[in-house]
């Protein structure tokens, strides 16, 4: 580790080894989720299905947000084009499910690349506004092209029976969706620990340093958007089938904000943090709205308190608590936003 020029291929980097404990935990969680339909009501299956699909969306979003450190507020567009590819393909054009999956992923990737190229020269708040603008344009398109999209009445009648695994109706689709999400999440994890994924994360930490080292920073940013777009669109496709409906709300900026909330609350610095965010937010919505009509107020307060006191998310806070809070070298999200170099790297001779 004495050389300053990294040859990532040769060095055994712990960042690039799969975390076996995380894999074991993931297997346990997937098995637990798979038995949900045996032990719980349809209502619970509906709620969990929504969490599973949003979980994939949050993981995909975090490739851009947590890894590459680009605060995109336009991810609903990447999610929504997948939903619309599904709705239009199945209902309007009579495509098969295989075509729809390919189309959704392709259109998500393309829009991701477009978004990545359009935001190449922007950072922080400007990137946020630019991605928001692109997403709003896509939303407007879906809203206005009534003949094709049904406008704000959306497209109903999506047949989720086309994607089914070992069961009928909702349960069959639930297992199929769980399988798709599991495979997709594994692929995303493989990407995150791959060479490219590691460079993407390094770009997020210090683009100027990576540029100085000779990396084409821009292409890694576009790659992050492309990968994120592909998996976001896949999640969007699953959501359209889960709800058997697609409308402009699948593209609305509120969804972009919600997925950012998942990542921040759960912890954007870790791979699985956004999943914790999904469980937190979607779970809290269900539980709190059972208790009171004023549930948005309660949730709003909860978010404010969390962001004030847990700026690195729940997972970040827990790791801080475990590692001891007096460790000044521990990288925080705040320090990364401030563009300081990760202390672990700085400390090297």
């Amino acid at each position: 580790m004495s050389s300053t020029t990294p040859d990532l291929r040769r060095q055994p980097d712990p960042r690039r080894q799969p975390d076996l404990r995380l894999v074991a935990l993931a297997v346990a969680v997937v098995v637990a989720l798979a038995v949900v339909p045996f032990v719980a009501s349809t209502y619970v299956v509906t709620v969990v299905l929504r969490m599973v699909v949003l979980g994939l969306f949050a993981l995909a979003f975090n490739v851009v947000f947590g890894a590459a450190d680009m605060p995109s507020l336009g991810h609903a567009a990447l999610f929504g084009v997948g939903s619309y590819a599904c709705g239009l393909g199945l209902v309007r054009w009579g495509w098969g499910i295989g075509t729809v999956v390919v189309a959704a992923v392709a259109v998500g990737t393309l829009l991701g690349i477009l978004m990545g190229i359009a935001t190449l020269r922007t950072q922080g708040i400007y990137l946020l506004l630019l991605t928001l603008a692109i997403a709003q344009a896509v939303w407007g398109l879906a809203f206005q092209q009534v003949r094709l999209t049904g406008g704000d009445n959306g497209i109903a009648g999506i047949d989720r029976g086309l994607l089914t695994l070992g069961g009928d109706g909702l349960v069959g689709f639930y297992w199929a969706a769980l399988a798709v999400v599991t495979v997709a999440a594994a692929l995303l994890y493989a990407f995150r620990i791959s060479i490219v994924g590691t460079v993407v994360e390094a770009v997020g930490m210090s683009p100027s340093r990576l540029r100085a080292l000779g990396f084409a920073v821009g292409s890694y940013r576009v790659t992050a958007f492309a990968v994120s777009g592909a998996f976001s669109a896949l999640a969007g496709m699953l959501m359209a089938m889960a709800t058997r409906f697609v409308g402009p709300e699948n593209l609305a900026w509120q969804l972009s904000a919600e997925v950012m909330l998942f990542a921040i609350l759960g912890g954007a610095a870790s791979f699985a943090g956004p999943l914790v965010g999904v469980v937190l937010v979607a779970g809290a919505e269900v539980v709190v709205s059972d208790w009171t009509d004023r549930w948005p107020t309660v949730l709003g307060l909860l978010y404010v308190v969390t962001l004030l006191f847990l700026p690195d998310g729940v997972v970040g806070w827990l790791s801080q608590w475990r590692d001891g809070r007096d460790d000044p070298d521990r990288p925080t999200r705040a320090s990364r936003v401030g563009r300081s170099l990760p202390p672990a790297v700085e400390a090297e001779p």
């Binding site: 935990l25 620990i193 469980v279 809290a284 729940v314």
Partner: peptide, 22 residues
Amino acid sequence: MIARPHRPVRLGLALVVSLALV
């Protein structure tokens, strides 16, 4: 940062905190 050890422990604790917050 993905592969830091003891992540699963943290995840488990995160779930507990989720419940507590709810």
